[in-house]
Design a protein around this nucleic acid. Sequence first.
RNA 1: GCCGGCAUGGUGAAAUGGCAUACACGGCAGACUCAAAAUCUGCUGCCCGCGAGGGCGUGUGGGUUCAAGUCCCACUGCCGGCACCA
Length: 810
Amino acid sequence: MAKYPFKEIEQKWQQRWEEDQTFRAVEDEHYPKEKRRYVLDMFPYPSGAGLHVGHPEGYTATDIYCRYLRMNGYNVLHPMGFDAFGLPAENYAIQTGTHPAVTTYTNINRFRTQIKSLGFSYDWSREVTTCDPEYYKWTQWIFLQLFKKGLAYEAEMPINWCPSCKTGLANEEVKDGHCDRCGTKVVRKRIRQWVLKITAYADRLLEDLDKLDWPEPIKLMQRNWIGKSEGATVIFKIDGHDATLEIYTTRPDTLFGATYMVLAPEHPLVPSITTPDRLAAVNAYIDEAAAKSDLERTDLAKDKTGVFTGAYAINPVNGARIPIWISDYVLISYGTGAIMAVPAHDSRDWDFAKKFNLPIIQVVAKPGETGPFDREPAECFEGEGIAVNSSEFNGLPTAEFKQRITAWLEERGIGKKAINYKLRDWLFSRQRYWGEPIPVVHCEHCGIVPLPEESLPLTLPEVKSYAPTGTGESPLATIEEWVQTTCPKCGGPARRETNTMPQWAGSCWYYLRYLDPHNPKAFADRSKIDYWMPVNLYVGGAEHAVLHLLYSRFWHKVLYDLGLANTDEPFMRLVNQGMILGEDNQKMSKSRGNVINPDDIVANYGADTMRVYEMFMGPLEVSKPWSTAGLVGVSRFLERIWALSERAIIDALMSPELEKLLHKTIKKVTNDTATLNFNTAISQMMIYSNELAKLESIPRAAWEPFVLLIAPYAPHLGEELWAKLGHTESVSKAAWPTYNEALTHDEEKEIVVQINGKVRSKFTAPAGTAREQLVEMARQAEKISDWLAGKEIIKAIAVQDKLVNFVIKG
RNA sequence: GCCGGCAUGGUGAAAUGGCAUACACGGCAGACUCAAAAUCUGCUGCCCGCGAGGGCGUGUGGGUUCAAGUCCCACUGCCGGCACCA
């Protein structure tokens, strides 16, 4: 018996698909909207390490699904491209002097070859690369639209700075307070930055999550990241000053329990309210806080610090004079940068009050708590309850008190309802070379001036050194002839922006460029957007939950508001594939030496084996360890199918039993493929092929549908077997097999007989036998009369086609 | 600390509240072979028993139910996210 010649077959069909452009997607109006599907993979960053076994997992899943959809009469858009700007290529350039574009395109070519070797049905004519000027021209163009809408602005703000790499780092490049690349401790540095006003969309980004068919944990992560909170602002008078102090609280009902105030060290009121005797201490504290990194201020420094300013605020509800402190546990960037401290009902305030011996007054009684409430409580209580020590509000439940006190404050003009978000504006600039140049100039007369859209792309100039300057400017700043330019508005001298965009920029909208990748006039023609969008299924890793997936939702909404997109959400359904771990159940990494290279698998076992194995490992969404033994099992499965195809395929009727199994198999594989439950679809195909293996010759009617079922999973094998059956057209154009529902049901059912819930016997009965009759049959069943002898039957439960359970006593 | 996810044989894993362990790997036995590999067939949760058979079993402890891997409550462990957001 000839071994399955996967090398020849895979090469042959990949070549054929390319020559025939089998998977080219065309905007054919004959397909109604509901027969079109846009199935998207998260495109890869082409690293120097080559494709990882994790990449093909999601790609295989979408590929099987796309092939399944095409066979079911759908017009499918399934593109692939490369996220090509980014740090690794630039860092390599710094070390070796190789232009990042050279490294990047070498890696892209390798990735493309690797991806193609797995036989995915992408429409490669739509490939996009984010570092291509023809692509980033439109990234810059979208930036200009954001700028014109006032959604991109310049600001001085503290950022994460790596003193060793001499560059700013994005939040995602900081791991536990250290530079992800070199391990140096990150410090804060104030430099000029471009920032995108994502906060303007906070509420819509939150609300619209409800429309999306995404995994709940991902939606929850976005909700938490956006962090909407509802409360009130309250204005406190400052004793002896005209200025007032505004604070934000989610618990206005605890106002009577405020025993001190805390300002962030950066709060603008601090200098003016600090008393002379406290000035030295306050200034020392401010300097100390400023020198701390974010890590020191948050992660490591749960220990509260702070100093008294010498000033007092007046509590508007009871006139109490309460001290104003400063502490870095209050953040200048959230709310009003100032709080009222209620130590009895906030654990942070509790810790602070305990440390500095500040008074603690209980104002909320736990449900059922009876008091007395005139002494300092033994512990902090943050839950809801009944108001105490709150004058005329005593006895009110928390929720009601909140409403009443907010109205009370509003009437007096000293407070109002307020909403805050944890989400911050998006720090959008990098002091890096390998990114999209930000298309604006700084003019002495006109200020910041956007480049005219016709002048785009603003391409990256060549530089001698890719190394960061260390001054907080990108390497672009060193090219005087590039930096010096003229103002598009007044024609006077101007300097180009030298910051570049972060890696996330290109991926914010790539799914739109796939729709019309070569359009020189627009990022995508509106008719093509209307034809395909929104994305029906988006598959990728969960690590992008709050970064790419939030950023691209933001950009998409902006485009929608500009009338440039047809929906206000880009990705209707999201599925996260689980991680593939090493054989040792650890994350794959070079240092652990447990990395599996897909090239080796394809070379030794074939692409189809790789594909089917990755889908057979377990559910798509969960993490699972790689197992070479498991891979071999799948390889044997495909070998057996090949061996079956070498047997005589005859035009004879199949047995009724086989026919039933065939229809059950078609049903299960159809449903499981449609719902992405590929592992159970594969095991059903194994069951069916094991049955076929018992036959010396195989009825054509039993074989052909099976070839069609396996084709999306093992497409090369599928094509070859289909051709062996005499078909000349690609199996991907064939119609998916149908099943007869009646044949998927058994006429005879095995009925289980239980005594007190334990299985004691079994018998067969015609499907649909009435429950009363099942009970009668069960009484006669083998051994059951012995079990029932001399016992009282309290109850007999019968479930049609399933079981009879006798509940007995004695 | 807070939020979320997961936990089933030696292993990867199946299971609309209705026979737990389908399918695959591994293991054992057998067939083929001079032999081995490959391939094929059978067996394979644990305990007691010669056997018939019985008992126990889905991280732990409770509960609901005629019936729980599945539903509820409490806990443990692992993985992920957030981390002074007032």
